[in-house]
Design a protein around this nucleic acid. Sequence first.
DNA 1: TTTTGTGCAAAGTTTTTGCAATTTT
DNA 2: AAAATTGCAAAAACTTTGCACAAAA
Lengths: 152, 152
Amino acid sequence: MLQLSISDIKSQLQRAGFKMTPQREALVQVLIQHKTAHLSAEELFMLLKRSHPDIGLATVYRTLEILTQLTIVKKIVFEDGIARYDLKRKETGHFHHHLLCVKCGEIEEVFEDLLFDIEKKIETDYHFNIMDHRLTFHGVCKICQFAERDES
Amino acid sequence: MLQLSISDIKSQLQRAGFKMTPQREALVQVLIQHKTAHLSAEELFMLLKRSHPDIGLATVYRTLEILTQLTIVKKIVFEDGIARYDLKRKETGHFHHHLLCVKCGEIEEVFEDLLFDIEKKIETDYHFNIMDHRLTFHGVCKICQFAERDES
DNA sequence: TTTTGTGCAAAGTTTTTGCAATTTT
DNA sequence: AAAATTGCAAAAACTTTGCACAAAA
């Protein structure tokens, strides 16, 4: 089941006592349309203003906060300190990983569940009850590796 | 070789064209003393003021930036958006992992290199040249698990 | 009609920057 | 002496909050 339909998210909101509004719906739409883009609140706000010129940035932040609490969206902060928001893909059952290129800034996603065994080991060895994770590799992406080769 | 001596860091700074100052030395000392504490710039600043009442917060930020560039220190940002700074432990050859308790906020460190095989796989499958990583598990620590049990 | 949500502006946080004075090499 | 560094204050960048009005259930 893909966690990507508006009506599904609407019922999740309502079950939690929130109302569905045009602004919230629009934000979810934008998140769906740009689901691999790792957008910041400001970037989402800019995209939303196209269809909803009167929307406020505070509404974007408040809605993202709710969606994060409902685990519909995951907040991820890389070393630049800016919060980015990723729609969770329910189909995979775990949060995906990121490859962050230090040259061009591009973020590639890895959907394989690479951490299964490691999580088991951590739970056992450290008595830590894992609920979520963040795994990001910093390095040079394929395209930038080619660019580097051409430079020399 | 432990990356933890002042004189070693001093020569690294000088090799890169930076000067060693009392403020920088003091910051490194504090980082060594609190090497498992994951302190923010503000927290480091407070600790530094004890011995150097005149130190400025900007100096702390500027020095951390340099130490980060020289990979003496690693900057890590969790979902609260505050940058924290970890002295890199050269002995392990890789950056350690973190267990972040969602109940008490405690951060436990995992020094085992759990990612070796995964990094190999990523490098091959994605043609991504890995230079560094950030791996954090969110969950409930041992102590908070006991507290939860007692609550019910 | 009751409760929740919205936009705006103001305030709060964390981090960065300009600059004159000081310190290091 | 030359170059880099410092502290301070101001600015910048991102996020949160208070409030009166509006919209959803």
